[in-house]
Amino acid sequence: MEGLSRIKVECRGVSAFYGETQALNEVNLSIYDHEVMALIGPSGCGKSTFLRSLNRMNDLVSGCRIEGEISLDGEDIYGRGMDVTRLRTRVGMVFQKPNPFSKSVFENVAYGPRIHGMASNRSELEGIVETSLRRASLWEEVKDRMKQPGSSLSGGQQQRLCIARAIALNPEVILMDEPCSALDPIATARIEELIAELRGSYSLVVVTHSIQQAARISDRVAFFHLGKLVEDGLTGDIYNDPKDDRTLGYITGRFG
């Protein structure tokens, strides 16, 4: 697998600081094209911080400093020439709690394309919206409810709406921060199905606190502990034959 796919995102020596506290310590990780990478580890181990540094959302947290190098297709995303707003159209994010805008379903998905001028007329925009909703496997459920507010959907539908919103910008990488933790098991299953489908078009990095979920959805897994990347590799390898004791301990549920 490694030989066939390209590296999409390369992280070298990444450390993160909130003021004086260090949250990430010299993380080296590669994320490949068209794969699902799961980030696992006990709470507070830095996986969310790491995720946020991939689309520079940490810039919004005052006092947060990132060191090291993160490159997207070889370009340093913290470099001078990188326009953050452009970066985020290439690296999208879905949050833990669904957060649709207080607008209609259509407007929610259309927001991204609108501000980035991706459509030159109304029908193009509608096309983008429909495509995104289809890819998020939400189209059938909302095609008659496009004008209703986003908040009128169920929890699982809202989360798929947020996914559609991110997809609308045609990203290359989609980051997901515990996307199912606020959802019931049925909705969770649907999202997991969706992730499997999306793998064909995008690279996905999913933070999850559920070891089982990671095993189900991911191609590769990275285990974080106390700000350090302890171990990463193919899912099967990590689960059947972890090289580090800490990894074994976490996977078998001894801690975390």
Partner: peptide, 10 residues
């Protein structure tokens, strides 16, 4: 074109 557009936004 995208760079110009972005500049306008900024």
């Amino acid at each position: 074109a995208t760079r110009d557009y972005d500049r306008k936004r900024h």
